[in-house]
Deep mutational scan, measured.
Amino acid sequence: AEKTGIVNVSSSLNVREGASTSSKVIGSLSGNTKVTIVGEEGAFYKIEYKGSHSYVAKEYIKDIKDE
C-alpha cells in the first residue's frame, strides 16, 4: 500500500539512488514537498521521484499517511 509523507527540512533533502548515505545523490526535495512512499529499506523510504524510484532518509519525512 502506498503512503504519502511531507519533507520536513528547512532547506533541502537529498534524494539518493540507493538506501544508503553513501549512495549517489540524484536530486533534492525542498521542505513541505509531498512525497509518495512505495516502500522502506532500513533507515530510508523508497519514494516515487521523476518517474522512477529513489530513496530519502526516514528521519526527514513527517505526517505519514496511508493513501
Rank of each mutant, 00 (worst) to 15 (best):
A1Y: 15
A1D: 09
A1V: 14
E2D: 10
E2A: 15
K3A: 06
K3P: 04
K3C: 13
T4D: 05
T4K: 09
T4L: 10
G5N: 03
G5H: 05
G5M: 06
G5S: 04
I6F: 10
I6A: 04
V7H: 02
V7Y: 03
V7R: 01
V7N: 02
V7D: 02
N8G: 09
N8H: 10
N8R: 10
N8L: 09
N8K: 11
V9A: 11
V9L: 07
V9W: 06
S10T: 13
S10P: 11
S10F: 09
S11W: 09
S11F: 10
S11A: 11
S12A: 11
S12K: 13
S12Y: 13
L13Q: 04
L13N: 03
L13P: 08
L13I: 15
L13C: 15
N14F: 12
N14R: 09
N14Q: 14
N14E: 15
N14A: 15
V15T: 03
V15L: 06
V15Q: 03
V15A: 03
V15E: 01
V15Y: 03
R16P: 01
R16H: 15
R16C: 10
E17H: 05
E17T: 06
E17R: 05
E17G: 06
E17S: 08
G18F: 14
G18R: 11
A19M: 03
A19T: 06
S20Q: 06
S20F: 07
S20L: 06
S20T: 10
T21Q: 12
T21N: 14
T21M: 15
S22Q: 11
S23C: 08
S23M: 04
S23T: 06
S23Q: 04
K24S: 08
V25F: 04
V25Y: 04
I26Y: 02
I26K: 04
I26G: 01
G27K: 00
G27H: 02
G27C: 05
G27W: 02
G27V: 02
S28L: 11
S28I: 11
S28V: 13
S28K: 13
S28F: 11
L29A: 02
L29H: 01
S30H: 11
S30F: 09
S30A: 14
S30K: 14
G31N: 15
G31A: 15
N32S: 08
N32M: 10
T33D: 09
T33G: 04
T33L: 07
K34Y: 10
V35S: 00
T36F: 12
I37H: 00
I37S: 00
I37N: 00
I37D: 00
I37F: 00
V38R: 05
V38Q: 04
G39W: 03
G39C: 06
G39I: 02
E41V: 11
E41W: 06
E41Q: 08
E41S: 09
E41T: 08
E41R: 05
G42Q: 05
A43F: 08
A43P: 10
A43E: 14
F44R: 00
F44I: 01
F44E: 00
F44Q: 01
Y45P: 01
K46P: 00
K46D: 02
K46C: 11
K46N: 02
K46E: 06
I47W: 00
I47A: 01
I47R: 00
E48T: 09
E48R: 10
E48C: 14
E48V: 15
E48K: 14
Y49S: 01
Y49R: 00
Y49C: 03
Y49L: 03
Y49I: 03
Y49K: 00
K50F: 11
K50G: 10
G51H: 06
G51P: 01
G51D: 07
S52R: 12
S52K: 13
S52V: 10
S52Y: 10
H53D: 05
H53I: 13
H53Q: 08
S54W: 06
Y55G: 00
Y55A: 00
Y55F: 12
Y55L: 01
Y55S: 00
Y55R: 00
V56Y: 00
V56H: 01
V56L: 04
V56F: 01
V56A: 05
A57N: 08
K58I: 06
K58Y: 02
E59N: 07
E59P: 05
E59W: 07
E59C: 12
E59L: 09
Y60N: 08
Y60T: 04
Y60G: 12
I61S: 01
I61A: 01
I61V: 08
K62L: 11
K62G: 11
K62Q: 10
K62C: 12
D63M: 15
D63Q: 12
D63K: 09
D63T: 14
D63P: 12
I64H: 07
I64P: 06
I64D: 08
K65M: 11
K65T: 14
D66A: 11
D66P: 12
E67W: 08
E67T: 13
E67A: 13
